[in-house]
Design a protein around this nucleic acid. Structure first.
Lengths: 223, 223
DNA sequence: TGGCCGTGTACTGTATACAGTATACAGATG
DNA sequence: CATCTGTATACTGTATACAGTACACGGCCA
């Protein structure tokens, strides 16, 4: 008898609030101007302030939110210098994962990655958000296979921030298909087993994403 | 009239609790067997459970604590595989900082780092903890100079975990002086301006730390 | 004596109450 | 009319109260 363990994962209300906030941020229901106030949110969700407070503070330590001048929280802002830093950090994390994979990855793992990429990139008429989600899934798959939980944590943290700023998603104004298809070459680079090759390929893929990003930001500024 | 700005840094009780817990963990006042219970801690500190709870949960998300089976929190455990992963992550972060520094660092910055290293390494009869603190200060200085706040955050997170496990401190049973003096060569590697050279030097320095660590863990196990 | 079951207890999560603080606004004063 | 000051209020941080849950322990039965 092999029953599946009932996930007794302690599910706290704060987690629920957290998820809802993330969802709301991603779908732009929460804009940069909105002020998030504990009491108001609590009333809206029909729960007490305590779990709301916890979720907000968590998002704050993650750098997604920041305390507004006159109380409450606001979406954190990121200038171009910080965006560059975020991409640098991303390169560090994902580059390391690539190195690990180049040394350890077996054929089946790589094939699995290829399958996933083909599936995820098969988007019909995708929105920016669809692209962001697919892109994240693909990149995250590499991290998971690298099998380092700390790197994975950091990946999630970075992409969490990116989510808040609608980054890494190749802005609406730029042709996002440019980046698609490129992911398979990442797998190829790993398959060579050459650590430097893998690192370089990942780094330049991410660099290309950064360039797209900057391009997109410029377009937005032009409005 | 130039009055000094009163530090309006919102200081929450939770921060105070957090600091005290970190301090207690570092000085081994909290051992792996201890169970941290909100109510007890609150009573001991003579405050309410709320800020205690916040501090504990923060340490949990940072991976320093974990929920104990029968309620309360306990120091998280780390097996050798995880230690290896932590060092891998460390190499990713600090290696990237080294690359950045190799490209950008000016002479004065490097001289400043050399000064700091000489000061910090000048330990008379150091305890393991002294060594840990000095080591962290040195490595953190590199990160600060690299000027990437995300990498710095991750550095702090990694070393926070390390603190909880008394890692990175070159275990008592191993000659810690082996690692001292090595730090100056890190600066030299950066000074060459060669990105690969800088990365390699940092990586192998960290690798050496890992080897020492494993050595130390074996010694402990032998008891 | 060993296993099982019910009850007590210890601890958590959530709600609410209270007090302090910073901001905003209105009124006063030159 | 502009600037300063006092007061209201909006929001937070902390304390406390309440209810649910999971574990442990002791008693009961085989």
């Amino acid at each position: 008898m092999a029953l599946k363990q009932i996930k007794t994962q302690r599910r706290r209300l704060a987690d629920e609030v957290y998820d809802q906030l993330v969802e709301a941020i991603m779908s732009r229901d929460i804009s940069a101007e909105d002020r998030l106030v504990q009491e108001k949110l609590a009333a809206e969700l029909n729960i007490s302030r305590t779990p709301v407070r916890e979720a907000l503070m968590r998002l704050e330590t993650e750098g997604v939110l920041e305390v507004a001048a006159s109380g409450g929280f606001r979406l954190a802002r990121m200038d171009q210098a910080e965006v560059r830093q975020l991409y640098q950090a991303r390169a560090a994390i994902e580059g390391q994962a690539a190195r690990i994979l180049a040394v350890h990855a077996e054929r089946e793992v790589l094939d699995g990655l290829r399958d996933l990429i083909r599936r995820e990139e098969n988007l019909t008429n995708p929105t920016t958000r669809d692209y962001f989600v697919a892109n994240r899934r693909i990149h995250r798959a590499f991290m998971v296979e690298a099998g380092n939980k700390f790197l994975l944590d950091m990946f999630d943290m970075i992409w969490g921030k990116a989510m808040a700023f609608h980054l890494f998603s190749a802005i609406e104004n730029v042709d996002i298909t440019m980046s698609l298809g490129d992911h398979l070459t990442l797998v190829d680079a790993i398959a060579t087993g050459d650590v430097t090759e893998a690192l370089e390929t990942f780094t330049s893929h991410i660099q290309a994403g950064f360039d797209l990003q900057i391009e997109g930001l410029k377009e937005v500024d032009r409005d």
